[in-house]
């Protein structure tokens, strides 16, 4: 049954990983502005006409 102890440690380690992910995302300010990031991703960086002419 020693394997259960191993599994326990593994499961807590995975959960801890998510906890740190959460803390990191909060620290990074990801929850402060819920509007800009989903919008930002939709903006295309169109190739400039001037540069394509050159």
């Amino acid at each position: 049954m020693a394997v259960i102890i191993l599994l326990l440690i593994a499961s807590i380690a995975v959960a801890a990983l998510f906890l740190f992910g959460f803390i990191w995302s909060v620290k990074n300010g990801q929850y402060e502005d819920e509007y800009s990031p989903p919008m930002r991703i939709l903006f295309d960086d169109k190739p400039s006409k001037k540069s394509s002419e050159q």
Binding site: D33, Y35, S36, M39, R40, L42, F43
Partner: peptide, 27 residues
Amino acid sequence: CSSCLYLLENLHKIHTGVIKVTVQFTR
């Protein structure tokens, strides 16, 4: 609105002196 976001974050296209603009929309 999202237009504001688009324009302000592309400010570097208008003036090369601007390096980066990040909008904090809610604030």
